[in-house]
Amino acid sequence: MRPILMKGHERPLTFLKYNRDGDLLFSCAKDHTPNVWFADNGERLGTYRGHNGAVWCCDVSRDSSRLITGSADQSAKLWDVQSGQQVFTFNFDSPTRSVEFSVGDRLAVITTDPFMELTPAIHVKRIASDPADQSAESVLVLKVPQGRLKINRAVWGPLNNTIISAGEDAIIRIWDSETGKLLKENQKEEGHTKTITSLVKSPDGSHFLTGSLDKSAKLWDTRTLTLIKTYRTESPVNAVAMSPLLNHVVLGGGQDAINVTTTDHRAGKFEAKFYDKILQEEIGGVKGHFGPINALAFNPDGKSFSSGGEDGYIRLHHFDHDYFNIKI
């Protein structure tokens, strides 16, 4: 396959997200402007100007009309996808790290980092269908007992009943999204040992995958929070993705930027590694980035995936025919 290289960002990529139809790809980077691209040919459709800090995360509504972004400028913004106009700004007192729309797009979960004397928190906001009625009030604020450690990802559980969070303390927590009660924590001995960098749900929401700097990714059952599978790799995992079509998971990462100059460039392992979801065996690697992979996303049709790297490039890969016939 010949990947399409997209150089729309000046700084390292942080997050990639496809819309539900799989025709648009949203990219966030440490420069302040998220981009949207056509996912088939990589042409840039537009940019969302207005943030004043690194953009850490984004999510797009099911009908692809609204975009929500979380940024280090202590705000989360709602955008009109088509025009690139800001619709609403949620202001916080600390940088926002993770955002996600709920099923139905009526709620959004936003996490904020520890900052000054503030501890990390998970906020739930109501998203009004008419932007004029939008309020900045939080429906629920969860204070997370992890002190100074960030929450890197918070996502909605099935039927919006729960919120699943994971972060630097390497513990996955499931919260009740109505009452804010902590329902479950994962077993210490089977969990990650270092920062969890990414968390992605399966298309049906029955299980989810976490990637961690402890050089592994783990597959969990959403309801019971039991460990299903573990995928081991040779370098810290910054991003994970799950194929919606085949039983494949993809891990992206590479050594920390801080170590790059001290070792052989091939030792960086800046490749997206494909694993069989069930057999936990490595299927192959896709190389190309000049730095660690920070973001991975699968097209909802499962026929292409994109990766975003510390090198500022997005690489959009349309799979060859061979890929669909790989046998273990």
Partner: peptide
Amino acid sequence: RLTMVSTEEILLERPR
């Protein structure tokens, strides 16, 4: 030229 097609053919490298 924000969007370019890679000149390099990237293969899914099989480990074994």
